[in-house]
Amino acid sequence: MADGTTAEMNAVSDMIAAQVFAEPGAPVLVFDHVGLAFDEKVVLRDVSFTLLKGHTKIILGASGSGKSTSLKIITGLLKADAGVVWVNGRRVDQLTEREMMAVRADLGLIFQEGALFDSLTVRENVGYKLYEESDMPIADVDRRVEEVLGFVGMLDHIDKMPSALSGGQRRRVAIARAMAFKPRILLYDEATTGLDPITALTVNDEIIKLRDLEGVSSIIVTHQLRDAFYVATHSATREPDGAVRIVRATSEKEREAEFVMLKEGLIVFEGDADALRRTTDPYIQSFLS
């Protein structure tokens, strides 16, 4: 009887959560006073921020400031020492690895160097989760893989091994792999670091397209200011003929991209692109110059 009541309550709370998180601007990811230290070294101190549905959070900071660590905490690859993390209304900081698998179904993580499986082809990499961890028919998986590879302009490379791809191509395949299972939140860890400006622009355009055309909420970790501002100040639109154009974002759209700057594990700035440009903080000024 008690079990039945609990199941009913869970079903009701799931239904309410589904309604809340279907609303535009719902808080899909909350980082609440999170802290982490490795032995004596403090990586994150009391870090808090919220990602709203369809918005972009750009985490800036020097190397070792705790940016990538934040993404690993969100995906449960690392556990925080203190604080609370919510993803799609579910508290994830206390979940076991097994429980975390369900949360990860809605999180796509693009690693610094792509982290493609080097023994698998581009097709197998992109479709990995669908081939291995879902019951989707193979023909449907193949179709989805070709669709996302087409989206990032990599369909011609579908049967290549990752070792045969350039750095930029590997990042685009990594983006395709992360979006193949249609997660609602994408986390980019230095997606453009080490790329030439033209390739970086291509990757930035993919990030913008995913956000504006697919409704994906994103967290972008980078120390490439040029790329950060580009993503924050541009938007993607689909023309009547189906072509996608990247244009200058409206000021309202610009405000949907919020910057967070980390310094030695602490948040030293939070605000939109305009506020970041106008800040007088000497550290941020030195970072911007």
């Binding site: 690993k72 995906t75 449960g76 690859l77 690895e97 097994r98 698998m101 990860r104 179904a105 999180l107 796509g108 993580l109 690693f111 610094q112 160097e113 982290a115 493609l116 499986f117 080097d118 990995y128 989760k129 291995e132 961890e133 792999r177």
Partner: peptide
């Protein structure tokens, strides 16, 4: 090369 973490992030133990 973070491939083990990538496996975990993709829901594989």
């Amino acid at each position: 090369t973070d491939q083990i973490n990538a496996l975990r992030a993709l829901g594989t133990d």
